[in-house]
């Protein structure tokens, strides 16, 4: 499935059945991001399909 990574403004093609598996494959720390599925916030347990629109939003700010 196609994943949008907001921090780097890029799309990646990844196969994963859950958000947890997706983040593990992308080596992204879950404490630093929010994940939306079809524009709704979801937890790491959420199941994914190829039809879903997935975005990964970095929550880091400040200096």
């Amino acid at each position: 499935m196609k994943i949008y990574i907001e921090k780097t403004d890029e799309y990646k093609e990844v196969e994963a059945s859950t958000v947890k598996e997706l983040l593990e494959k992308l080596k992204i720390n879950p404490t630093t991001i929010l994940v939306t599925k079809n524009n709704e916030l979801v937890t790491e347990e959420e199941k994914l399909t190829n039809k879903d629109e997935i975005k990964i939003l970095s929550v880091i700010s400040g200096g």
Partner: peptide, 27 residues
């Protein structure tokens, strides 16, 4: 936590992306 604040901001519709200061990674 930072993630909890971001979650609240997103759910309240204040913003849907959170920009990092361009100088922050060097700190």
């Amino acid at each position: 936590t930072e993630k909890e604040v971001a979650t609240y901001a997103f759910l309240k519709g204040f913003m849907d992306k959170f920009n990092e200061c361009p100088n922050s990674p060097y700190s």
